[in-house]
Design a protein around this nucleic acid. Structure first.
Length: 444
RNA sequence: GCGAUCGUGGUGAAGUGGUUAACACACCUGACUGUGAAUCAGGCAUGCGUGGGUUCGAGCCCCAUCGGUCGCCCCA
Protein backbone atom coordinates (compact mmCIF):
# COMPACT_ATOMS: atom_id res chain seq x y z
CA UNK A 1 0.00 0.00 0.00
CA UNK A 2 1.43 3.34 -0.95
CA UNK A 3 -1.12 5.68 0.57
CA UNK A 4 0.25 7.08 3.79
CA UNK A 5 -1.34 9.28 6.35
CA UNK A 6 -1.21 13.00 5.62
CA UNK A 7 1.56 15.12 7.01
CA UNK A 8 1.03 16.25 10.55
CA UNK A 9 -1.59 13.64 11.34
CA UNK A 10 -1.24 10.41 13.22
CA UNK A 11 -3.05 7.22 13.97
CA UNK A 12 -3.79 6.74 17.61
CA UNK A 13 -4.07 3.07 18.30
CA UNK A 14 -3.95 0.32 20.89
CA UNK A 15 -2.18 1.39 24.06
CA UNK A 16 -1.99 5.01 22.95
CA UNK A 17 -5.69 5.12 22.19
CA UNK A 18 -6.37 3.62 25.59
CA UNK A 19 -4.18 6.29 27.16
CA UNK A 20 -6.05 9.03 25.33
CA UNK A 21 -9.34 7.70 26.61
CA UNK A 22 -8.10 7.56 30.16
CA UNK A 23 -6.62 11.04 30.08
CA UNK A 24 -9.77 12.43 28.49
CA UNK A 25 -12.00 10.81 31.05
CA UNK A 26 -9.81 12.07 33.88
CA UNK A 27 -10.08 15.60 32.50
CA UNK A 28 -13.82 15.30 32.03
CA UNK A 29 -14.20 14.10 35.59
CA UNK A 30 -12.43 17.21 36.84
CA UNK A 31 -14.67 19.42 34.72
CA UNK A 32 -17.70 17.70 36.21
CA UNK A 33 -16.26 18.23 39.69
CA UNK A 34 -16.41 21.93 38.91
CA UNK A 35 -19.96 21.52 37.66
CA UNK A 36 -19.26 21.92 33.95
CA UNK A 37 -21.52 20.44 31.28
CA UNK A 38 -20.50 18.95 27.95
CA UNK A 39 -20.80 20.62 24.58
CA UNK A 40 -19.99 19.31 21.11
CA UNK A 41 -19.87 21.63 18.16
CA UNK A 42 -19.14 20.98 14.49
CA UNK A 43 -15.63 20.41 13.29
CA UNK A 44 -16.13 22.99 10.55
CA UNK A 45 -17.78 26.37 10.74
CA UNK A 46 -18.27 29.34 8.47
CA UNK A 47 -14.85 30.87 7.89
CA UNK A 48 -16.17 34.22 8.98
CA UNK A 49 -16.69 32.94 12.52
CA UNK A 50 -12.96 32.57 12.94
CA UNK A 51 -11.96 35.75 11.17
CA UNK A 52 -14.35 37.65 13.45
CA UNK A 53 -13.36 35.98 16.74
CA UNK A 54 -9.78 34.78 16.49
CA UNK A 55 -8.96 37.80 14.40
CA UNK A 56 -8.15 38.17 10.71
CA UNK A 57 -4.74 39.60 11.51
CA UNK A 58 -3.75 36.59 13.63
CA UNK A 59 -1.40 34.00 12.15
CA UNK A 60 -3.93 31.30 12.87
CA UNK A 61 -6.44 32.84 10.53
CA UNK A 62 -3.99 34.31 8.04
CA UNK A 63 -1.98 31.22 7.28
CA UNK A 64 -2.98 28.23 9.35
CA UNK A 65 -6.62 27.53 8.59
CA UNK A 66 -7.92 24.70 6.46
CA UNK A 67 -10.40 26.71 4.45
CA UNK A 68 -12.48 25.34 1.58
CA UNK A 69 -15.52 26.16 -0.47
CA UNK A 70 -18.31 23.61 -0.41
CA UNK A 71 -20.64 22.71 -3.26
CA UNK A 72 -23.05 25.41 -2.15
CA UNK A 73 -20.27 27.96 -2.53
CA UNK A 74 -19.97 28.56 1.20
CA UNK A 75 -16.55 29.34 2.63
CA UNK A 76 -16.01 26.92 5.49
CA UNK A 77 -13.02 26.25 7.71
CA UNK A 78 -11.94 23.37 9.87
CA UNK A 79 -11.91 24.75 13.38
CA UNK A 80 -8.42 25.93 14.41
CA UNK A 81 -9.56 26.20 18.02
CA UNK A 82 -12.72 25.49 19.96
CA UNK A 83 -13.82 28.65 21.72
CA UNK A 84 -15.28 30.36 18.66
CA UNK A 85 -17.58 27.46 17.86
CA UNK A 86 -18.68 27.10 21.47
CA UNK A 87 -19.60 30.77 21.76
CA UNK A 88 -21.33 30.71 18.38
CA UNK A 89 -23.40 27.78 19.60
CA UNK A 90 -24.20 29.46 22.91
CA UNK A 91 -25.42 32.57 21.12
CA UNK A 92 -27.27 30.67 18.42
CA UNK A 93 -29.10 28.55 20.99
CA UNK A 94 -29.75 31.62 23.14
CA UNK A 95 -28.06 30.06 26.12
CA UNK A 96 -26.63 33.47 26.92
CA UNK A 97 -30.14 34.65 27.81
CA UNK A 98 -31.94 31.46 28.87
CA UNK A 99 -29.32 29.51 30.80
CA UNK A 100 -28.32 30.17 34.38
CA UNK A 101 -25.13 32.17 34.43
CA UNK A 102 -22.34 31.63 34.56
CA UNK A 103 -22.69 28.98 31.92
CA UNK A 104 -19.96 26.39 32.32
CA UNK A 105 -19.07 24.18 29.40
CA UNK A 106 -16.29 21.72 28.64
CA UNK A 107 -15.28 20.10 25.38
CA UNK A 108 -12.85 17.57 23.97
CA UNK A 109 -12.15 17.05 20.32
CA UNK A 110 -9.93 17.57 17.31
CA UNK A 111 -8.91 20.91 15.87
CA UNK A 112 -6.86 21.68 12.77
CA UNK A 113 -4.05 24.03 11.88
CA UNK A 114 -1.86 24.03 8.82
CA UNK A 115 1.52 24.22 10.54
CA UNK A 116 4.93 22.66 10.26
CA UNK A 117 4.74 19.56 12.44
CA UNK A 118 7.07 19.15 15.38
CA UNK A 119 7.11 17.09 18.53
CA UNK A 120 3.77 17.58 20.25
CA UNK A 121 2.46 19.62 17.35
CA UNK A 122 0.20 18.21 14.70
CA UNK A 123 -2.06 19.48 11.96
CA UNK A 124 -4.90 17.56 13.49
CA UNK A 125 -4.60 17.82 17.24
CA UNK A 126 -6.89 17.45 20.20
CA UNK A 127 -7.94 19.92 22.78
CA UNK A 128 -9.69 19.67 26.06
CA UNK A 129 -10.98 22.95 27.35
CA UNK A 130 -13.54 24.79 29.39
CA UNK A 131 -15.50 27.99 28.97
CA UNK A 132 -16.93 29.85 31.94
CA UNK A 133 -19.35 32.27 30.33
CA UNK A 134 -21.02 35.19 32.05
CA UNK A 135 -18.87 35.52 35.13
CA UNK A 136 -19.38 38.46 37.47
CA UNK A 137 -16.58 37.99 39.98
CA UNK A 138 -12.82 37.96 39.51
CA UNK A 139 -12.90 34.96 41.80
CA UNK A 140 -14.45 33.03 38.93
CA UNK A 141 -11.24 33.59 36.99
CA UNK A 142 -9.25 32.14 39.87
CA UNK A 143 -11.72 29.27 40.14
CA UNK A 144 -11.29 28.47 36.46
CA UNK A 145 -7.51 28.57 36.70
CA UNK A 146 -7.66 26.25 39.67
CA UNK A 147 -9.72 23.82 37.60
CA UNK A 148 -6.78 23.60 35.24
CA UNK A 149 -4.33 23.10 38.07
CA UNK A 150 -6.57 20.44 39.59
CA UNK A 151 -6.58 18.58 36.29
CA UNK A 152 -2.79 18.41 36.39
CA UNK A 153 -2.86 17.29 40.00
CA UNK A 154 -5.31 14.52 39.18
CA UNK A 155 -2.96 13.31 36.45
CA UNK A 156 -0.23 13.07 39.05
CA UNK A 157 1.68 16.27 38.45
CA UNK A 158 2.45 18.54 41.35
CA UNK A 159 4.96 20.87 39.73
CA UNK A 160 2.58 22.93 37.62
CA UNK A 161 3.16 26.62 37.52
CA UNK A 162 0.78 29.18 36.16
CA UNK A 163 2.07 32.17 34.26
CA UNK A 164 -0.21 35.09 34.67
CA UNK A 165 -0.65 38.51 33.18
CA UNK A 166 -3.33 41.07 32.65
CA UNK A 167 -3.84 42.70 29.29
CA UNK A 168 -6.45 45.11 30.62
CA UNK A 169 -9.35 46.36 28.58
CA UNK A 170 -9.12 47.47 24.97
CA UNK A 171 -8.44 51.11 25.95
CA UNK A 172 -5.53 49.87 28.03
CA UNK A 173 -4.11 47.88 25.16
CA UNK A 174 -4.50 50.79 22.72
CA UNK A 175 -2.60 53.10 25.05
CA UNK A 176 0.00 50.46 25.74
CA UNK A 177 0.48 49.68 22.07
CA UNK A 178 1.14 53.36 21.40
CA UNK A 179 3.65 53.57 24.23
CA UNK A 180 5.35 50.40 23.08
CA UNK A 181 5.74 51.69 19.54
CA UNK A 182 7.14 54.94 20.86
CA UNK A 183 9.64 52.96 22.90
CA UNK A 184 10.70 50.73 20.04
CA UNK A 185 10.76 53.39 17.33
CA UNK A 186 14.37 54.55 17.92
CA UNK A 187 15.61 50.94 18.28
CA UNK A 188 13.92 49.73 15.15
CA UNK A 189 17.02 49.52 12.92
CA UNK A 190 18.86 47.25 15.39
CA UNK A 191 15.99 44.91 16.13
CA UNK A 192 15.60 41.51 14.42
CA UNK A 193 13.71 41.34 11.10
CA UNK A 194 10.83 39.43 12.67
CA UNK A 195 10.41 42.17 15.24
CA UNK A 196 10.47 44.82 12.55
CA UNK A 197 7.56 42.95 11.04
CA UNK A 198 5.84 42.62 14.42
CA UNK A 199 6.24 46.35 14.98
CA UNK A 200 3.76 46.84 12.17
CA UNK A 201 1.40 43.93 12.74
CA UNK A 202 1.36 43.20 16.45
CA UNK A 203 3.82 45.17 18.60
CA UNK A 204 2.84 43.26 21.74
CA UNK A 205 4.42 40.15 20.32
CA UNK A 206 7.82 41.89 20.27
CA UNK A 207 7.85 41.28 24.00
CA UNK A 208 8.32 37.55 23.71
CA UNK A 209 10.89 37.56 20.93
CA UNK A 210 13.46 34.80 21.41
CA UNK A 211 16.47 36.74 20.12
CA UNK A 212 18.68 37.49 23.17
CA UNK A 213 19.40 41.11 22.26
CA UNK A 214 15.71 41.76 21.72
CA UNK A 215 14.89 40.10 25.01
CA UNK A 216 17.19 42.52 26.80
CA UNK A 217 15.44 45.35 25.07
CA UNK A 218 12.04 43.94 25.93
CA UNK A 219 12.98 43.96 29.59
CA UNK A 220 13.41 47.71 29.37
CA UNK A 221 10.18 48.23 27.50
CA UNK A 222 7.23 49.82 29.25
CA UNK A 223 5.32 47.40 31.42
CA UNK A 224 1.67 46.83 30.62
CA UNK A 225 0.91 46.60 34.32
CA UNK A 226 1.50 50.33 34.57
CA UNK A 227 -1.11 51.01 31.93
CA UNK A 228 -3.95 49.11 33.52
CA UNK A 229 -7.01 51.10 34.46
CA UNK A 230 -7.93 51.28 38.14
CA UNK A 231 -10.69 48.74 37.59
CA UNK A 232 -8.44 46.31 35.74
CA UNK A 233 -5.77 46.67 38.41
CA UNK A 234 -8.22 45.95 41.20
CA UNK A 235 -9.68 43.05 39.27
CA UNK A 236 -6.26 41.57 38.61
CA UNK A 237 -5.33 41.97 42.26
CA UNK A 238 -8.41 40.06 43.35
CA UNK A 239 -7.62 37.21 40.97
CA UNK A 240 -4.10 36.95 42.37
CA UNK A 241 -5.33 37.11 45.92
CA UNK A 242 -7.79 34.28 45.34
CA UNK A 243 -5.13 32.17 43.63
CA UNK A 244 -2.91 32.54 46.68
CA UNK A 245 -5.75 31.44 48.90
CA UNK A 246 -6.20 28.40 46.69
CA UNK A 247 -2.46 27.66 46.95
CA UNK A 248 -2.07 27.92 43.20
CA UNK A 249 1.56 28.51 42.35
CA UNK A 250 1.80 31.33 39.84
CA UNK A 251 4.33 33.76 38.51
CA UNK A 252 3.46 37.07 36.99
CA UNK A 253 4.85 37.59 33.54
CA UNK A 254 4.18 41.06 32.14
CA UNK A 255 5.54 39.86 28.79
CA UNK A 256 2.92 37.15 28.43
CA UNK A 257 0.76 38.03 25.45
CA UNK A 258 -1.51 35.67 23.62
CA UNK A 259 -1.99 35.41 19.90
CA UNK A 260 -5.77 35.36 19.72
CA UNK A 261 -7.41 38.72 19.37
CA UNK A 262 -10.31 38.06 21.71
CA UNK A 263 -8.30 37.91 24.91
CA UNK A 264 -8.58 40.70 27.45
CA UNK A 265 -7.75 41.23 31.11
CA UNK A 266 -6.34 38.06 32.67
CA UNK A 267 -4.41 35.68 30.47
CA UNK A 268 -2.53 32.66 31.71
CA UNK A 269 -0.53 29.60 30.72
CA UNK A 270 0.01 26.29 32.45
CA UNK A 271 3.65 25.28 32.50
CA UNK A 272 5.12 21.97 33.45
CA UNK A 273 8.49 20.40 33.89
CA UNK A 274 8.48 16.65 33.34
CA UNK A 275 9.88 14.17 35.86
CA UNK A 276 13.01 14.08 33.73
CA UNK A 277 13.36 17.83 34.08
CA UNK A 278 12.39 18.70 30.54
CA UNK A 279 10.51 21.94 30.14
CA UNK A 280 7.54 21.40 27.88
CA UNK A 281 6.50 25.00 27.78
CA UNK A 282 2.83 25.78 27.75
CA UNK A 283 0.68 22.67 27.95
CA UNK A 284 -2.41 24.73 28.18
CA UNK A 285 -3.39 28.35 28.01
CA UNK A 286 -6.33 30.63 28.15
CA UNK A 287 -7.71 33.84 29.45
CA UNK A 288 -10.62 36.16 29.64
CA UNK A 289 -12.59 37.18 26.61
CA UNK A 290 -15.03 39.84 27.59
CA UNK A 291 -16.29 41.01 24.23
CA UNK A 292 -16.50 37.81 22.27
CA UNK A 293 -20.06 36.81 23.14
CA UNK A 294 -21.36 40.23 22.24
CA UNK A 295 -19.18 40.38 19.15
CA UNK A 296 -20.86 37.19 17.94
CA UNK A 297 -24.31 38.62 18.47
CA UNK A 298 -25.05 37.70 22.08
CA UNK A 299 -25.17 39.42 25.43
CA UNK A 300 -22.15 41.33 26.73
CA UNK A 301 -20.85 38.58 28.99
CA UNK A 302 -17.50 38.49 30.70
CA UNK A 303 -16.03 35.06 30.21
CA UNK A 304 -12.92 33.03 30.84
CA UNK A 305 -11.67 29.78 29.42
CA UNK A 306 -8.64 27.71 28.62
CA UNK A 307 -7.58 24.74 26.53
CA UNK A 308 -5.08 21.94 26.98
CA UNK A 309 -3.30 20.33 24.08
CA UNK A 310 -3.78 16.62 24.51
CA UNK A 311 -0.80 15.67 22.36
CA UNK A 312 1.51 17.72 24.55
CA UNK A 313 -0.09 16.34 27.65
CA UNK A 314 0.44 12.83 26.39
CA UNK A 315 4.07 13.63 25.55
CA UNK A 316 4.76 14.76 29.10
CA UNK A 317 2.90 11.83 30.61
CA UNK A 318 4.81 9.44 28.42
CA UNK A 319 8.15 11.12 29.13
CA UNK A 320 7.41 10.83 32.82
CA UNK A 321 6.74 7.12 32.47
CA UNK A 322 3.10 7.43 33.43
CA UNK A 323 1.71 5.62 30.43
CA UNK A 324 3.89 2.54 30.65
CA UNK A 325 1.27 0.23 32.08
CA UNK A 326 -1.76 1.68 30.41
CA UNK A 327 -3.40 -1.07 28.42
CA UNK A 328 -6.76 -2.69 28.03
CA UNK A 329 -7.37 -5.43 30.50
CA UNK A 330 -9.34 -8.58 30.52
CA UNK A 331 -10.94 -10.33 33.45
CA UNK A 332 -11.48 -13.72 31.94
CA UNK A 333 -9.71 -15.33 29.01
CA UNK A 334 -11.58 -18.31 27.61
CA UNK A 335 -9.54 -20.87 25.72
CA UNK A 336 -11.42 -23.23 23.48
CA UNK A 337 -9.17 -26.16 22.70
CA UNK A 338 -10.79 -27.51 19.56
CA UNK A 339 -13.53 -26.74 17.04
CA UNK A 340 -15.98 -29.01 18.87
CA UNK A 341 -15.73 -26.91 22.04
CA UNK A 342 -16.12 -23.53 20.34
CA UNK A 343 -19.86 -23.22 20.72
CA UNK A 344 -19.73 -24.31 24.37
CA UNK A 345 -17.05 -21.66 24.93
CA UNK A 346 -18.96 -19.00 23.02
CA UNK A 347 -22.05 -19.50 25.19
CA UNK A 348 -19.95 -19.25 28.31
CA UNK A 349 -18.36 -16.01 27.11
CA UNK A 350 -21.86 -14.66 26.57
CA UNK A 351 -22.80 -15.46 30.16
CA UNK A 352 -19.66 -13.79 31.52
CA UNK A 353 -20.17 -10.68 29.44
CA UNK A 354 -23.74 -10.37 30.58
CA UNK A 355 -22.57 -10.49 34.17
CA UNK A 356 -20.16 -7.64 33.53
CA UNK A 357 -16.88 -9.51 33.15
CA UNK A 358 -14.48 -8.29 30.50
CA UNK A 359 -14.10 -11.49 28.57
CA UNK A 360 -11.86 -12.56 25.72
CA UNK A 361 -12.67 -15.66 23.73
CA UNK A 362 -9.85 -17.51 22.01
CA UNK A 363 -11.00 -19.81 19.22
CA UNK A 364 -7.58 -20.18 17.61
CA UNK A 365 -6.92 -23.73 18.81
CA UNK A 366 -3.23 -23.06 19.28
CA UNK A 367 -1.08 -25.04 21.65
CA UNK A 368 -1.88 -24.75 25.33
CA UNK A 369 1.42 -22.97 25.82
CA UNK A 370 0.64 -20.40 23.19
CA UNK A 371 -2.90 -19.93 24.54
CA UNK A 372 -1.74 -19.32 28.09
CA UNK A 373 0.86 -16.87 26.84
CA UNK A 374 -1.83 -15.03 24.90
CA UNK A 375 -3.96 -14.84 28.03
CA UNK A 376 -1.04 -13.36 29.98
CA UNK A 377 -0.37 -10.87 27.26
CA UNK A 378 -3.96 -9.67 27.59
CA UNK A 379 -3.32 -9.16 31.27
CA UNK A 380 -6.15 -11.50 32.06
CA UNK A 381 -6.83 -12.46 35.66
CA UNK A 382 -8.39 -15.85 35.01
CA UNK A 383 -8.09 -18.31 32.20
CA UNK A 384 -11.02 -20.58 31.55
CA UNK A 385 -9.91 -23.69 29.69
CA UNK A 386 -12.36 -25.78 27.74
CA UNK A 387 -11.34 -29.03 26.12
CA UNK A 388 -13.37 -32.07 25.25
CA UNK A 389 -12.89 -33.56 28.72
CA UNK A 390 -14.44 -30.49 30.31
CA UNK A 391 -17.25 -30.31 27.80
CA UNK A 392 -18.24 -33.96 28.17
CA UNK A 393 -18.39 -33.58 31.94
CA UNK A 394 -20.22 -30.24 31.75
CA UNK A 395 -17.29 -28.62 33.48
CA UNK A 396 -14.64 -26.00 32.83
CA UNK A 397 -11.14 -25.53 34.16
CA UNK A 398 -10.53 -22.16 35.73
CA UNK A 399 -6.97 -21.08 36.29
CA UNK A 400 -5.91 -18.13 38.37
CA UNK A 401 -3.13 -16.70 36.25
CA UNK A 402 -1.45 -14.98 39.17
CA UNK A 403 -1.35 -17.85 41.63
CA UNK A 404 -1.35 -20.56 38.94
CA UNK A 405 -3.94 -22.46 40.94
CA UNK A 406 -6.55 -24.17 38.89
CA UNK A 407 -9.70 -26.16 39.51
CA UNK A 408 -12.40 -28.00 37.69
CA UNK A 409 -15.86 -26.58 38.24
CA UNK A 410 -19.34 -27.38 36.91
CA UNK A 411 -20.23 -25.09 34.06
CA UNK A 412 -23.52 -23.95 35.56
CA UNK A 413 -21.73 -22.69 38.67
CA UNK A 414 -18.78 -21.01 37.05
CA UNK A 415 -20.26 -17.53 36.67
CA UNK A 416 -21.39 -17.47 40.26
CA UNK A 417 -18.04 -18.78 41.44
CA UNK A 418 -16.21 -16.18 39.42
CA UNK A 419 -18.27 -13.43 40.99
CA UNK A 420 -17.38 -14.84 44.37
CA UNK A 421 -13.68 -15.13 43.52
CA UNK A 422 -13.43 -11.61 42.19
CA UNK A 423 -15.25 -10.48 45.24
CA UNK A 424 -18.06 -8.49 43.80
CA UNK A 425 -21.36 -8.49 42.09
CA UNK A 426 -20.72 -4.88 41.04
CA UNK A 427 -17.28 -5.72 39.75
CA UNK A 428 -15.83 -2.29 39.07
CA UNK A 429 -12.29 -2.70 40.21
CA UNK A 430 -10.85 -1.40 36.95
CA UNK A 431 -13.09 1.57 36.57
CA UNK A 432 -11.12 4.25 38.35
CA UNK A 433 -9.24 5.74 35.46
CA UNK A 434 -8.13 8.95 37.08
CA UNK A 435 -5.07 7.58 38.77
CA UNK A 436 -2.31 6.80 36.36
CA UNK A 437 -0.03 5.32 38.92
CA UNK A 438 -2.33 2.39 39.47
CA UNK A 439 -3.39 0.51 36.42
CA UNK A 440 -2.04 -2.81 37.45
CA UNK A 441 -4.75 -4.93 38.92
CA UNK A 442 -2.22 -7.58 39.74
CA UNK A 443 -1.51 -6.24 43.18
CA UNK A 444 -5.13 -6.67 44.11
C1' G B 1 6.54 29.87 4.81
C1' C B 2 12.32 29.79 6.03
C1' G B 3 16.83 26.99 7.84
C1' A B 4 19.12 22.29 9.42
C1' U B 5 19.16 17.11 9.89
C1' C B 6 17.50 12.23 9.25
C1' G B 7 14.58 7.95 6.69
C1' U B 8 17.22 0.00 6.64
C1' G B 9 12.09 -5.79 9.53
C1' G B 10 7.16 -5.39 14.64
C1' U B 11 11.35 -2.68 17.65
C1' G B 12 16.60 -1.03 18.43
C1' A B 13 19.99 -0.85 14.90
C1' A B 14 25.00 -2.55 11.66
C1' G B 15 26.20 -1.64 6.77
C1' U B 16 30.40 4.26 3.31
C1' G B 17 29.85 0.85 -4.60
C1' G B 18 30.93 -5.85 -5.23
C1' U B 19 28.41 -12.72 -3.79
C1' U B 20 22.44 -14.88 -0.01
C1' A B 21 21.15 -7.10 4.04
C1' A B 22 24.90 -8.46 10.28
C1' C B 23 23.47 -8.58 15.33
C1' A B 24 19.94 -8.09 19.35
C1' C B 25 15.00 -7.90 21.22
C1' A B 26 10.08 -9.21 19.95
C1' C B 27 7.11 -12.73 17.41
C1' C B 28 5.85 -17.82 15.17
C1' U B 29 6.80 -23.34 15.00
C1' G B 30 8.88 -27.68 17.16
C1' A B 31 11.74 -30.64 20.90
C1' C B 32 7.54 -30.62 25.31
C1' U B 33 0.75 -34.34 21.36
C1' G B 34 -3.57 -29.91 27.77
C1' U B 35 -0.45 -25.12 30.85
C1' G B 36 3.51 -19.34 31.73
C1' A B 37 10.54 -20.41 32.92
C1' A B 38 15.17 -21.91 30.81
C1' U B 39 17.63 -24.31 26.83
C1' C B 40 18.12 -26.01 21.91
C1' A B 41 16.65 -26.23 16.55
C1' G B 42 14.24 -23.77 12.81
C1' G B 43 11.23 -19.56 10.76
C1' C B 44 10.46 -14.28 10.13
C1' A B 45 12.97 -7.56 5.22
C1' U B 46 12.18 -10.61 -2.80
C1' G B 47 14.03 -5.60 0.03
C1' C B 48 16.66 -0.49 2.60
C1' G B 49 10.39 6.04 2.53
C1' U B 50 8.96 6.84 -2.94
C1' G B 51 10.31 7.91 -8.14
C1' G B 52 14.03 8.70 -11.49
C1' G B 53 19.38 8.84 -12.78
C1' U B 54 24.88 7.41 -12.75
C1' U B 55 27.32 2.46 -12.93
C1' C B 56 29.07 -3.91 -15.40
C1' G B 57 26.98 -3.56 -10.35
C1' A B 58 23.37 1.05 -5.74
C1' G B 59 20.98 0.46 1.09
C1' C B 60 25.57 3.19 -0.02
C1' C B 61 26.70 8.26 -5.26
C1' C B 62 23.32 12.23 -7.86
C1' C B 63 18.41 14.61 -8.57
C1' A B 64 13.48 15.03 -7.28
C1' U B 65 9.60 13.95 -4.05
C1' C B 66 7.16 12.36 0.50
C1' G B 67 7.64 11.92 5.66
C1' G B 68 9.93 12.42 10.73
C1' U B 69 12.80 15.47 14.07
C1' C B 70 15.05 20.20 15.62
C1' G B 71 15.37 25.68 15.26
C1' C B 72 12.56 30.15 13.40
C1' C B 73 7.49 31.76 12.91
C1' C B 74 3.17 30.66 15.55
C1' C B 75 0.67 28.05 19.13
C1' A B 76 -2.31 23.83 22.76
Amino acid sequence: MDIKLPKGTKDILLAEAEAYEQVESALINVAKLFSYAAIRTPIFEHTELFTRSVGDSSDIVRKEMYTFTDKGDRSLSLRPEMTAGVIRSVVENKLDVTADLPLKLYYVGPAFRYERPQLGRFRQFHQFGVENIGITSPLSVAETISLGVTAFTVMGFKQVTVKLNSLGDSATRDAYRTALKAFYEPHLPSVCPDCQQRFQTNPLRMLDCKVPADQLLAKKAPNITNFLSKESQAYYAEVKHALKDLSVVFTEDPQLVRGLDYYADCVFEFHMVSDKGLDYGALGAGGQYNNLVKELGGQPLKSVGFAFGLERLMAVLSDSGRLDNVKPFTDIYIISMMPETDLYALKLSHNFRHTNFKTELNLEHKSMKASIKAALKKDAIYAVIIGDQEMKANQVTIKNLQTQEQQLVPVNEVVHLMQHLTNQPGHHHHEETDDHDDHGHKEK
